[in-house]
Simulated assay, not measured.
Amino acid sequence: MMVCHCMSITDKDIHSAMDWMRSSDPDTIITPGKVYRALGKKADCGGCLTLFMDTMRKSDSLEVPAQLRNLRGTRKRNRL
């Protein structure tokens, strides 16, 4: 399915980029900007961002690595 008409990005492109990023660096935080850069493109009009994000959320690669979860809560507890 075409997600971004301006840059000709499909849902398969997004999932492939996310899978590539996760396999090359398991600890990375994947953002839309990083996906665009991995595809060698950049956002143009921004009209696709909602669909782009929905497509990203459907990927298992989007999950935050376990060692990076709840860092904000951990820092607060360590300060007390």
Rank of each mutant, 00 (worst) to 15 (best):
M1P: 09
M1K: 10
M2I: 11
V3I: 11
C4V: 00
C4I: 02
H5M: 14
C6S: 13
S8K: 13
S8D: 12
T10C: 05
T10L: 03
T10Q: 00
T10P: 00
D11K: 06
D11L: 04
K12Q: 14
K12A: 14
D13F: 01
D13L: 02
I14L: 03
I14G: 01
I14H: 02
H15W: 03
A17F: 06
M18T: 03
D19T: 05
D19L: 13
M21D: 05
M21R: 02
R22H: 01
R22M: 08
S24T: 14
S24Q: 13
S24R: 13
D25Y: 04
D25I: 07
P26H: 11
P26S: 13
D27S: 08
D27L: 07
T28F: 05
T28A: 09
I30R: 03
T31C: 04
T31A: 01
G33M: 10
G33P: 00
K34F: 08
K34N: 06
K34P: 03
V35Q: 04
A38V: 11
L39P: 03
G40S: 06
G40E: 05
D44M: 15
C45L: 06
G46I: 03
G47S: 09
G47K: 08
C48N: 05
L49K: 08
T50P: 08
L51Q: 14
L51C: 09
L51D: 14
L51V: 11
F52L: 06
F52I: 04
M53K: 10
D54P: 02
T55I: 01
T55F: 05
M56L: 06
R57N: 14
R57G: 01
K58H: 07
K58P: 02
S61T: 02
S61F: 08
S61V: 01
L62G: 07
L62H: 07
E63S: 12
V64F: 07
A66C: 05
A66E: 15
Q67D: 12
L68I: 02
R69N: 09
N70A: 05
N70V: 01
L71Y: 06
L71W: 02
R72M: 12
R72G: 11
G73D: 03
T74K: 14
R75P: 00
K76A: 07
K76L: 09
K76E: 13
R77L: 12
R77T: 08
N78G: 04
R79F: 09
